[in-house]
Design a protein around this nucleic acid. Structure first.
Lengths: 356, 356
DNA sequence: TTGAAAGCGCTAACAG
DNA sequence: CTGTTAGCGCTTTCAA
């Protein structure tokens, strides 16, 4: 490995001058010295040893990223956006951790990040218990959370970046109501997280506005904490039977995310119903693949790109300036209309079981 | 931050003894000393500074991972499997890089990895040009590649882990042929990569075995290097028109991966054809989501889990023993039968355009 | 069985 | 404008 010493020797200067060009302090030397050093660096293909640099400065150009699992296309997209932006914009690398929504793993990752000298981490978690996050912050880690919100009334202790989930729920329910649906359902995994609660709140608010003309129920599937994000579609599939057999049967259902909608649509088909004729579906996330399902899925689009960039911006800002004031940054979702929603069928016979 | 000094002081020993327990050299001290030190470590919540450790030893418990993009569920799954296994099995962390199939970015990542002291990297790339890989290896990086193969006749210079793509192509084509299809097509992005070549070879071999009874053509879409993996489904969608208008029209098509199949199925539907009645589709990868498409997608299943683990095993082994002999490790794919394949319709009128 | 001490490669005073 | 030097926290001889 070539070191800063080698460069200094070749350029006939001291190591500190080399260090100065490495750190952009061009004003500290004659232009010609600068050029000479630059040339030596190039000639040797020299790259500074990050471990040494970090040991000295305590800073590291690495961001931590915790997601439930990149196997879920939503988080896969998020991870890609963030990593790409962090790299392009700031030259920062990303240390990835799939937490599987496991608190132990999250905590272990925090410890590791600190040991690696990482100063900022982006956390996509559904864990309502934030005490391990607090612990990490106490140890000097800057935390940016995604899709989590501060407890009402509590002091904001870290940065929260999230879509307006209430608006998302409202947007979805209202779209269905506008099409004439009066029996709605909201499908999600078992257990209330911050964002699920908000989505339900928005969903219910839209229904309440109709004062009795529409009704909405929440349908829970299995627990993601136990079954994992890979199971989301499968969970949606299983929930189809429950939903189809509800009395009164909902004619419009909103799912907490698109993967669940994909599974739910498959399940509903296998129950012998047609989408959107017999049942309308609205997803959330607006995944790339949602344009290619059958029928193409109407979904609530979260501005992922913008949110990813914001999270990275905040994270990097905090590395430079750890005492930055904490903020809650909220993004507005939009409705992407495709073909999974139609007016409810008016006839008594909503379906042809077994037709498939 | 608590340091090894703090621990030494609290346990009334020297730093070297603490270092010894950190590195499992229990035989170098009295059991009671060991216990005392352990206790001090626990009491202080001490974690060794990785930068310092690495600066000293030159080793790092971090693996590099290069994928085109985790936004593609296939790579997202792969990244998850690998990261989870590396962490659970070896306590190694993963530095993620989305290369977007860009050679510059790949090369930059290699340089960074070296600067970070990373010793092994897993590369999922379609770049046929391996010279930047060679360069990285020359600088001491151990490389494990996925879905790449050695040039025939050349010396194996790094580890290659991959599915038997020839078998995959054969499996897919034969399945279609067994159902009575005689006009087949193989759909893929523009440009031959190692794995595409192999898949085509297997596809064609299965057809040739039928000596004239079946024919097969390769259909190319846009270039992934230019359009990105997010476009795969969209590309498949666009290719539907081309395929439907081919003369003779293929009745069975194999796609190079499931994302393309998902898009292709949507496109074919929009062309007014029914799947599998008018056209049968076989995908490759067997994504989780492929069980929930409409119709559920018959696909070639690659043993991702096993391949991921093998890559990590090799990578970690190489960190410990850099001069390990390079190997090519091949995994057998299997056929997952779902509902996107049926016998070709016999009538003249294969479709009802505009029915939808 | 334990401790002292020499660096790993770099940055950042500080001195010249 | 340039050079000298003291560590950052750890591992690893080597000596006691």
């Amino acid at each position: 490995m070539t070191t800063i010493q080698d460069v200094a020797r070749l350029a006939h200067v001291s190591v500190s001058s080399v260090s100065n060009v490495l750190n952009g302090k061009a004003d500290r030397m004659r232009p010609e010295t600068y050029t000479r050093i630059e040339e030596a660096i190039r000639k040797l293909g020299y790259r500074p040893n990050q471990a040494a640099r970090q040991l000295k400065t305590g800073r590291s150009p690495i961001l931590g990223l915790l997601v439930p699992t990149t196997a879920n296309p939503f988080f896969g997209q998020l991870a890609m956006s963030m990593e790409t932006y962090a790299q392009q914009q700031y030259g920062h690398r990303v240390l990835l951790c799939n937490t599987h929504r496991d608190k132990q793993l999250e905590a272990a990752m925090f410890d590791d990040l600190i040991a690696f000298g990482v100063r900022a981490v982006i956390v996509v978690s559904s864990l309502s218990d934030e005490q391990h996050i607090e612990a990490a912050m106490a140890r000097g880690l800057a935390v940016i959370s995604f899709d989590l919100g501060p407890d009402p009334g509590s002091v904001i202790r870290h940065d929260y970046v999230l879509p307006d989930n209430v608006a998302a729920g409202t947007l979805a329910a209202r779209h269905l109501i506008e099409y004439g649906h009066s029996h709605l359902a909201f499908a999600m995994p078992k257990g209330l997280t911050y964002s699920r609660r908000q989505k339900i709140e928005g969903f219910m608010a839209a229904i309440d506005q109709e004062s009795g003309k529409a009704s909405g129920r929440v349908v829970e599937g299995k627990s993601l904490t136990r079954y994992g994000d890979t199971e989301l579609a499968s969970m949606g599939y299983d929930m189809a039977a429950t939903i189809v057999n509800m009395d009164p049967r909902p004619t419009g259902v909103v799912t907490v995310n698109d993967m669940m909608a994909v599974g739910l649509m498959a399940g509903i088909r296998d129950q012998g119903l047609l989408i959107p004729d017999d049942m309308s579906i609205v997803g959330m996330d607006d995944l790339t693949l949602s344009a290619f399902t059958w029928p193409p899925l109407t979904s609530i689009c979260m501005p992922m790109q913008a949110m990813s960039c914001t999270m990275v911006d905040r994270a990097v800002a905090r590395i430079a300036q750890p005492d930055l004031e904490a903020e809650e940054i909220c993004f507005e979702p939009t409705l992407t209309i495709r073909k999974s929603v139609a007016a409810p069928s008016t006839g008594r016979h909503q379906s042809r079981p077994g037709s498939r």
